[in-house]
Nucleic acid binder design. Structure first.
Lengths: 236, 236
DNA sequence: CTTTCATGAATAATGTATGATTTTGGTGAA
DNA sequence: TTCACCAAAATCATACATTATTCATGAAAG
């Protein structure tokens, strides 16, 4: 899936066809996975060497990422990885709190049995895993939400959400989930499925709002802890 | 101000410094102003000739616009202008309905006398103009909203709104405003300023929600009329 | 002695120019 | 209509010029 910025999400046929696209995907992955840390400098010549291409496709890939907001440019200084810090995550989460209930309403009113069954399946696997495999859990969790939103008529809203979700996911996989939160996640998902299944839109929205709000706050808290530890490590 | 996609809005020091940036601004403007119509093909060599540069900066500008979602790429077919049609505007408007109340709340709670005075000034000029100068009105209207949101702590939300607003503005300047809507706009703005001034957050939010919902629907209706006329012109 | 500051070479960004390769899209013949 | 062919254009590689930044070095100041 090639992210295309908030407005796009249309042309699906251009995945890694071109060299620039492959580089784009690669750099994007490295940023989201944390391999390229905050403010890491993205030297064109170096990236070209790594990907065994000329500098041209690299520069284009970086410009695309710039349009997407994942890298920042300073004149004559080239590109750097946009720092994904606490404030940033908080902001993304708060936008999600606005978007997801909106996206969910459409789903509740248009969901098929198969859709609900799919949610139950994902939920079952999450319960099975019980957070033993965090990356897998994160994928399942994202798929859970994606299942609900992917067919929404508002492609712009879906695009914004999707782009944000990929950032959130990338962070989720590398921070721990508190025990209390683990129980809550499974509970909230169960409630959500029930509400959807019963076609109780308002209740579903209420549950979801609670769910993503809590999840977001938990994520920010974990980042705060991470940051505190890092600061202490420097001082100590 | 150089738009940077949803997540950006950070580095402000890079306006048209580089050649690629100037081209980016230029193409972006031509798309938003309608000079480059829906699906218009963006040939690299042609754009390079027009801007009197090599093809390299052009390609980079296009990639940036791609990341922003304003142009679409098909492999080996180059770039085209993303069509800004009725559905798209509807989607953007609906996201605005979610974001603006959120952004407004912060403003109401942090606005200074100077802020309110500025709003009154903009409103006064709009009343004076009385829609005689549409481009000017659109600028004032955008500035009105921008004044309320620009300092919001959530840069992501502000960035999304801002990017969307530029699209909405570009369309607003070229469609007529119905007489009834003209009266309503001024009235709603007055109500909004009053509510803000009185620190009545919920009322302000209610007025704003009504305002942008109506404005959005009006815009979509105008586009529908435009489209209908275009279809009839073809048939007739 | 440490910090600050100037300096110049190495590094890198940006842009130009050109050509190779491949794909696309149209044109005319079978 | 189908298919071979060709011009146009996209994509990429390569090489190079220019400009700006970075960074290590060393001098000067505190």
């Amino acid at each position: 899936m090639s992210g295309q910025g908030i407005l796009a999400l249309s042309a699906h046929k251009e995945d890694a066809q071109t060299s620039a696209n492959a580089i784009y995907e690669s750099i994007r992955h490295d940023i989201l996975s944390g391999k390229l840390g905050a403010n890491a400098r993205l030297k064109v010549s170096e990236l070209a060497r790594i990907h065994d291409t000329s500098t041209n496709p690299v520069r284009e890939a970086l410009q695309q990422l710039r349009g997407e907001g994942l890298v920042l440019f300073a004149p004559n200084q080239g590109a750097r990885v946009r720092p994904i810090d606490m404030e940033f995550v908080r902001d993304v989460v708060e936008v999600g709190v606005l978007l997801e209930p909106y996206l969910l309403r459409w789903f509740v009113e248009t969901a098929s049995d198969a859709d609900v069954a799919k949610l139950r399946g994902l939920q079952a696997e999450m319960e099975m895993l019980n957070f033993q495999d965090k990356p897998r859990h994160t994928v399942l969790d994202s798929t859970f939400h994606e299942t609900m939103y992917a067919r929404h008529y508002n492609r712009v809203a879906y695009g914004v959400w999707k782009q944000h979700r990929e950032i959130i996911s990338s962070i989720s996989t590398r921070v721990p989930i508190a025990l209390g939160r683990q129980k809550a996640i499974l509970l909230e998902h169960r409630d959500l499925i029930e509400a959807i299944s019963a076609q109780e839109t308002d209740r579903a929205v209420a549950v979801l709002t609670q769910h993503i709000g809590d999840a977001g706050r938990h994520l920010v808290d974990q980042l705060r802890i991470e940051e505190t530890l890092a600061t202490q490590a420097v001082k100590g």
